[in-house]
Amino acid sequence: MSDLRIEQVDSDASLLDWQHVHNLLIPTAPLSLDDIRERAQRNVLEVAYVGDVLVGCSTIRPPSDETPAATVIARILPEYRRRGHGKVLYERCLVRAQGFEAPAIETIILASNVEGLRFAEARGFVELETYLLPGDTIPFVTLRLQ
């Protein structure tokens, strides 16, 4: 059973924690603190801890004119995977995303994150598209919940 504590990003310390997880797991698209502050204005950003130990982060993007689907992204640091933390964080994201009443729910995973892709597929997500950001060598995979 996961003993995860999840908090919304609302301070410099939590911004730094969110940044740490994101930039470690998505090294092809690192974000500055200003980038994250801007994202926190339009998305729900959360950090996850076991006790005082940072284990992950999440993003919930509401639907927009560009993307009518809600997007959920749950990230757990590799050393804390397979303990139920990802499931708890993902389920929380899913509940919040369903509150947007979007026509679909999607997730985005770096193609090199084989564990993350398996995790999403095991929960009913199917690949929608693969895309490469300018200058990147590892594509992102967008999956939609069926």
Rank of each mutant, 00 (worst) to 15 (best):
I36V: 03
D34A: 13
T67S: 00
G86V: 04
R42N: 07
R144A: 14
G86D: 14
H20M: 14
V21Q: 01
S64D: 03
L31Q: 09
D3C: 09
V95N: 12
L89S: 07
D136G: 09
L4G: 06
Q19G: 00
A122L: 11
P63M: 01
F100R: 11
Q146K: 15
R96P: 01
L128C: 11
T67E: 11
P30Q: 02
D136T: 09
M1S: 13
C57E: 01
F140K: 14
L77G: 00
L24V: 15
T142Q: 15
A120H: 13
T67M: 08
S112R: 12
L132T: 12
V114G: 12
V141Q: 14
R37G: 00
E127R: 13
I73K: 02
F119K: 07
D52T: 05
Y90R: 13
I109E: 11
L54Q: 00
H20W: 08
L143V: 06
L110Y: 15
Y90M: 10
N43Y: 15
I138V: 15
A111Q: 11
A111E: 14
P63K: 01
A120Y: 01
R37N: 04
E106P: 09
W18N: 00
A122V: 02
K87P: 04
E101L: 14
P139L: 13
I6T: 06
P78T: 05
L16T: 11
P103M: 10
E106R: 14
R75I: 03
F119R: 06
I138F: 02
S32E: 06
A74G: 03
A74P: 04
Q98L: 13
T130L: 07
V72Y: 00
E7D: 14
G56L: 03
S112D: 11
L25I: 10
E7G: 01
E38Q: 14
F125L: 15
A13V: 09
G135Y: 14
L15S: 02
Y49S: 05
R144F: 07
E106Y: 09
L31D: 07
G124R: 05
A70K: 01
R82W: 06
E121W: 05
R42M: 03
M1K: 12
C57G: 00
I60Y: 01
C57K: 01
E46A: 10
T71L: 06
L33M: 03
